[in-house]
Design a protein around this nucleic acid. Structure first.
Lengths: 342, 342
DNA sequence: TTGAAAGCGCTAACAA
DNA sequence: TTGTTAGCGCTTTCAA
């Protein structure tokens, strides 16, 4: 059998509680006693049973992250921020793939409640409100990441999408473009609303009327990006530039441009939300806004941990700036000299 | 306070154990009683405490996956397979980023042991052996994914890299190429060894002597892929084709080819391990072997769960076939007709 | 079909 | 500085 605290106590010739104090680094244990207990722990290969500890102390040192899917590097970059922030404070994280399905999300919440997670970071679906209200009723600390539901008041950490889209648009304006089209996700999403607002703000600042004929809005899928782009090309051939508010739509739109013989950026400069680094010399030159996925996860989780440890602050909506860069940009590794090689 | 089994029992007018039987779907409870208990559960919003349950029953219904990093879609595709297989049987999964650091791996193992995970799926580092032996000493079920350590006997599920590299090489041979170079990771890695063996097997089957001057081996990084490729181009200008055994090296090598004005595939056809779908119309045409990451995770976890539930079979080394495809390949979505659009 | 008693491994509260 | 007692919420064992 696996060693318990009792075995350690016997071997060290002390009581259970003394061992407990040693493994919890509590003060008030004589250094000699401590050393004896430590020795016994090593000899037995004792590992404290976190389950028993949790049952008694009501602390599990676990968090959960509900995310659309782990099979997408944008979300997992964020997840990595969550994990790292958790690890800093001794917390483990359950990752749960909701597939953006509220029912699946609800099922996971039961599991997570039964496992006693101390806080939940969530990238909510459009209709997560009821699920999150249930958590609030239990007073479970929550933080929203990346997306913001309006009908609920909780800490939120996300990118400044309005500012980013405004910056993207300004780059195109600065290059002398005027007939700028916009392609983005539905306004019902916080992101969709913000991106469009940023686009319009930039136009307004330049003294331009937004032309509704140049605004194409639809579901944030690759397929739909292709469709919307095709329609724009068909109806409004004289585009001078393009802003895209979503990276999946951007993929589809780039396919459509390619299929229609439109070269990027020679025929049409494109500014978009995007984050791909793998094969950058082959990607067409783009102006891109890179959302701080890792920082969103990390800061959000720190706020969550602050809630858990009782440092409750009023819920805030925190916006982190996106970085605007041009692709292809410099490699993050330098090609080594030939002489360096073995 | 949160409702416990005791509250439910009181409300339903039965004993604790009867409630326990209901939530565990045990037989031998009168339908009427069952209904009464169910009603009490709903009224109180009772969720069983998995911690208490685990302490008593010694079952946590949790697994762990130790992987290099969650911020890489190859690993998370595999992780998604692990999660889905776990969910099928009611298991939650802890994901742990080892960053390929055995010390970090060891630290996570302590946490996982203390949390009572019932099994561990691991993508081992080169020097994980000691860590894994510690688990074996505790009789904790293990499965290795994707990589195979030689010094330890446990279930392993991975891609048939030998067969895949052989198939890649054969494609180039079938196209009439003879002076084929090979660029891959160190032989000390199971993958490195297998890929090189597959390359050589294909040459041998075609009656060709492998030319050691055309074989470049080094660390599996993008930077190193660039360096190895540059050296090959410098020393052996008359290459007719290229096989690459690792996707990070492939990225670097493609950079190097581009920087040296070598067009792919016109000047040099390239066959490689690769898995990128995002912007395929822009990626140079490649022959690629796609490893079944999801299936590796899923099958491996099923084997792990079989071990846990006592269906122990002798440890096996299971090879799943890789798919060989040519990039750019067909989109997995069809562009919609313009008429379809709103 | 139902229940009473014991105890999983640990820590909180109190005592010496 | 060290120890004793009780009990976290549940399931196992045994009994009715």
């Amino acid at each position: 059998m696996v060693a318990t605290i009792k075995d350690v106590a016997q071997r060290a010739g002390v009581s259970l509680i003394t061992v407990s104090r040693v493994i919890n680094d509590a003060r008030g244990v004589h250094p000699d006693t401590r050393a004896r207990v430590r020795a016994a722990i090593d000899e037995l290969g004792y590992v404290p049973n976190q389950i028993a500890r949790s049952l008694r102390s009501r602390q599990t040192s676990t968090l959960a992250l509900l995310l659309p899917t782990i099979a997408n590097s944008f979300w997992t970059t964020m997840a990595r921020g969550v994990e790292d922030a958790g690890e800093e404070r001794g917390y483990s994280v359950f990752l749960c793939n909701t597939d953006d399905d509220p029912a699946k999300e609800a099922r996971y919440l039961d599991v997570l409640l039964s496992r006693g997670v101390e806080g939940i970071a969530v990238i909510p679906t459009l209709t997560s409100t009821v699920n999150l209200q249930r958590l609030q009723a239990r007073k479970l600390p929550i933080v929203q990441l990346h997306r913001k539901l309006r009908d609920i008041v909780v800490d939120t950490v996300r990118a400044d999408n309005l500012g980013a889209t405004q910056a993207l648009t300004e780059r195109l304006l600065a290059a002398g473009r005027r007939r700028i089209a916009y392609l983005g996700p539905p306004r019902a999403l916080s992101i969709g609303w913000d991106c469009l607002a940023g686009f319009e703000a930039a136009l307004a600042a330049a003294g331009l009327e937004p032309d509704q004929q140049l605004v194409a809005i639809g579901a944030a899928s690759e397929r739909n990006g292709y469709a919307l782009m095709s329609a724009l090309l068909h109806d409004r051939p004289k585009l001078e530039a393009l802003v895209i508010g979503n990276s999946r739509q951007a993929n589809g739109a780039l396919h459509a441009l390619r299929d229609n013989g439109v070269r990027v950026p020679d025929d049409l400069p494109v500014a978009t939300f995007y984050d791909i680094a793998a094969l950058d010399p082959y990607v067409p030159s783009l102006i891109t806004a890179i959302q701080p996925a890792y920082e969103i996860g990390r800061l959000g989780t720190r706020r969550l941990l602050d809630q858990i440890t009782g440092q409750r602050q009023p819920p805030a909506d925190i916006l982190l700036p996106a970085r605007v860069v041009e692709y292809p940009h410099a490699r993050d590794w330098a090609p080594p000299a030939l002489a360096e090689m073995a």
